[in-house]
Design a protein around this nucleic acid. Sequence first.
DNA 1: GTCTATATAGCGATAGAC
DNA 2: GTCTATCGCTATATAGAC
Lengths: 188, 188
Amino acid sequence: MPPASNREAILDAYERLLVEQGERAATVEAVARAAGVSKGGLLYHFASKDELADAAIERLHRVAAECAEEATAQPDGVIEVFLRDAVKTGDPLDLALGAVQALQQSGRYPQAKPALDAVVQGWVDMLTEGLGDPVLARLVAVLGDGLYFGAAFSGGGAGIATPPASEQELDEMIAAVQQLAALRGARG
Amino acid sequence: MPPASNREAILDAYERLLVEQGERAATVEAVARAAGVSKGGLLYHFASKDELADAAIERLHRVAAECAEEATAQPDGVIEVFLRDAVKTGDPLDLALGAVQALQQSGRYPQAKPALDAVVQGWVDMLTEGLGDPVLARLVAVLGDGLYFGAAFSGGGAGIATPPASEQELDEMIAAVQQLAALRGARG
DNA sequence: GTCTATATAGCGATAGAC
DNA sequence: GTCTATCGCTATATAGAC
């Protein structure tokens, strides 16, 4: 990496604040404090709050692309890879995704929705292609959403959704879906 | 209904603003304008913004209880009833749920999370009891979450999640899950 | 490149007229 | 029961010193 100085650290702090406390808490001053710089220091790197948001969206695109590359390279079936990734919390993709989602829900950043849609569309395409069964693909995609929101929201975080499945519960659920996949003669 | 005057109208407007534009947009002034009263008029009925939030949470509890009663009285299987309800948008429960969820994600209302948890716990209990298969019950619950967020977020609304299933896609998905239920010998 | 100080605007809440 | 006017606070953003 080139210098990058505090820029990346500020973005990290911004993402964390967005995910953990929502857009409203992610004030310029709060982000600066969390990143260990002053308000003025932050505003040198990001001239406005909107530029912070744009940078978070840009990072989401980058991280999602990296993860998609890794995922398709894996030996396990698509169902297992996708559902396990859905509950993975704390990794860069989860953070970037949660951050942009917080932006979206604040209603102040119209740029957020298209970005989220693009990321999700990539997953749906991957599943449809990998399974060869559109209905099953959608079922797995929706199940992944449910797991994601369950995992994302029940932590210190926000919202509704059933608690995140334990390791064992997740295993059982994956097994059940694979049971269904076998029954329907899908790949996967 | 007794007088109720503008109180209910204000609550309606508050819920709609929360769901459609997030907590940040639901300022006292904006809510008052949307309800067709002035700021002072609103603050007569709800002495503070927190009282507005409390009233929304109270309404959620009331509406959720009503819906639970209706749901258990229905002849169809739990799977079908639950998954179809998950995508129903615009009804009072959906609105109340989305509103409290917006409150929760803003991070300013600690009262929101327990309320949401209670509502969700009611659903999980209903499914576990109705199906007699804990793994399948969790799978259906998580699937419902996925559908709910898909439906709730892809409209004018907020967030991630795959687009809401069309009528036909939903039918196919329900059929697939019932296929799995039959395979596992669960009640329907 | 990072800081302090400050201008400006918006929001929540109060006071008091009607 | 509903309105207008206004105070106090907080947040964004700018200006300019170091």
